[in-house]
């Protein structure tokens, strides 16, 4: 039998059953459970409880939302609160115009699928430029507390703002600069498809997922990493939860930690965006 490592407590078993343990501890609990059938049985029972609850209640998720609930959110409001508009600015997805393909490479799980679906929509959606854009204030640098990511210090100026008419917000910002243009899309991933934190790069672009929000950056600029970091720093202010420094190990679960990036040649910012394309998300 293997020697016992630091004592496994009640809460370790609980967190183990709930898949909330960090990987190192999980391995220790694995070892412990191998030596303690009673504890293993308890953990298995906890997991069966969770499965049973899901089997009982998950069908609720598939039910159509009753009209009396959905109508609450469709009732027109006279004015939209600025802090709420700010939320829209969080939802940032930057990709090079028409170059969604890079995004689709290199990731291997639900996060990628979500991204694919999203970008598929981004690619197909009709985008209406300029005037009439209901979120202009959100991203209009001249008017309001909510700024579009300001990339002027990197030589990029915001050129146009546009959005789709879809009920799911999809906002696009085009920047123009010395290395050409980059386009910025803002969107939210479907609830079930989101990853807590994820990063990736490839095909000349960088992307990251923060809860329901997707961020990505692509373009011909060699300093793409620095641009992405600038976008990230500015959007994180209104993010729904603190975003850990990208340079540090991604917490929790089975994701890999910080991985040396390889393909984006900017030393200033790119190391802050680890390439997790080889890792599980």
């Amino acid at each position: 039998m293997s020697e016992r490592r630091p004592p496994i407590c009640e809460f370790d078993l609980l967190a183990y059953a709930d898949d909330r343990l960090e990987p190192g501890r999980r391995v220790e609990v694995d070892d412990y459970l191998a030596t303690d059938p009673a504890a293993a049985a308890r953990v298995a029972a906890f997991r069966r409880q969770t499965e049973a609850l899901h089997r009982l209640y998950d069908p609720v998720l598939e039910e159509p939302v009753p009209e009396r609930l959905s109508s609450l959110l469709e009732r027109p409001r006279r004015r939209v609160f600025v802090p709420l508009l700010r939320l829209a600015a969080v939802i940032v997805l930057t990709i090079g115009a028409g170059s969604a393909g890079w995004w689709l490479r290199g990731q291997g799980d639900g996060s990628r699928l979500a991204a694919e679906a999203f970008l598929d929509r981004a690619g197909r959606a009709a985008v209406h430029p300029g005037a009439g854009f209901p979120h202009a204030r959100v991203v209009d640098l001249s008017d309001g507390p909510v700024e579009a990511p300001d990339l002027r210090s990197h030589g990029y100026r915001l050129a146009t703002i546009s959005r789709t008419d879809d009920k799911a917000p999809l906002i696009r910002l085009d920047y123009e600069g010395s290395h050409g243009a980059i386009s910025l899309f803002m969107g939210v991933l479907p609830r079930e498809r989101t990853a807590p934190k994820a990063f990736g790069q490839g095909g000349g672009g960088l992307w990251w997922v923060d809860g329901p929000y997707v961020y990505a950056l692509a373009g011909a600029d060699p300093n793409l990493g620095a641009l992405a970091e600038a976008v990230r720093r500015q959007t994180v202010l209104s993010a729904t939860e603190p975003f850990p420094p990208l340079a540090t190990t991604v917490d929790a679960g089975n994701r890999t930690g910080s991985v040396k990036p390889d393909s984006v040649p900017d030393p200033g910012g790119v190391e802050l965006l680890p390439d997790l394309s080889t890792g599980q998300l």
């Binding site: 959905s70 939320l87 939802i91 009920k167 329901p212």
Partner: peptide, 22 residues
Amino acid sequence: MDDLKWLIAREIPHLRRYARAL
């Protein structure tokens, strides 16, 4: 629908599930 409402709306199924179980 503004974006916050949209974000709230997409949580409704989860709120309903928890409420149903409660």
